[in-house]
């Protein structure tokens, strides 16, 4: 049974691949037009707050989760991809960051909550460049901050006793010098 199931799946995969190949050939037939088509093409994404957004293919290409989806199913231009973990507000921010070619100056304008939400979204959408960009941006925010600030930032509960913490601070006393005021 399982074997038959696998083989029929394989046939389906083969079929979609053939179709892709056919489409590919069609594109190759007229290169100048194909390039234009590719550039202008938009993909519809529906966000967690129910907003349908048309996003340029160049940006969608960085979202590996959608790429695997496109690869696995037979989709056409009318297909709407649900991205249930990302709000329209955050998707707009992501589009701005990608268009701005990942400039840390842009990240400085984002609120702490926006930074965190973009990090979670980048992980969910499997956008590797965005993920490292935003992780660096958050690292820049907390680099010179106090332990208390970072606990608050990530919602970490301190489970050290006062004595334990004081002892720890003593062993690495130099690391607590010259820290920004919260």
């Amino acid at each position: 049974m399982a074997e038959r199931g696998e083989s029929s799946e394989a046939v389906m995969l083969k079929k979609t691949e053939e179709e892709k190949l056919r489409k590919g050939k069609m594109i190759v037939g007229d290169e100048s037009k194909a390039g234009y088509e590719e550039e202008g093409k938009k993909v519809k994404l529906v966000t967690s707050d129910g907003v349908t957004m048309e996003v340029e293919i160049s940006i969608v290409k960085e979202m590996e989760i959608i790429q695997t989806f496109i690869g696995a199913t037979d989709t056409d231009d009318s297909f709407i991809f649900p991205i249930s973990n990302v709000s329209s507000h955050i998707l707009n921010q992501i589009i701005e960051l990608v268009k701005g070619e990942y400039d840390q100056e842009l990240a400085k304008k984002l609120s702490h909550d926006e930074l965190k939400e973009i990090l979670v979204a980048a992980n969910y959408l499997n956008m590797k460049t965005l993920f490292h960009f935003i992780a660096t941006a958050i690292a820049n925010v907390i680099q010179n901050k106090s332990v208390e600030f970072v606990r608050d930032f990530f919602g970490i509960v301190n489970d050290f006793t006062e004595e334990e913490e004081a002892e720890l601070r003593k062993t690495n006393a130099w690391a607590f010098e010259g820290v920004d005021e919260d």
């Binding site: 992780a135 660096t136 690292a139 907390i142 680099q143 010179n144 106090s146 332990v147 970072v150 606990r151 990530f154 970490i156 509960v157 301190n158 489970d159 050290f160 913490e165 720890l168 601070r169 690495n172 130099w174 690391a175 607590f176 820290v179």
Partner: peptide
């Protein structure tokens, strides 16, 4: 992505 100094400081965040 942090400097060693910051990482050392954040050992105090929690036991985990």
């Amino acid at each position: 992505k942090l400097l060693t100094k910051s990482v050392l400081r954040f050992k105090c965040l929690s036991k985990k």
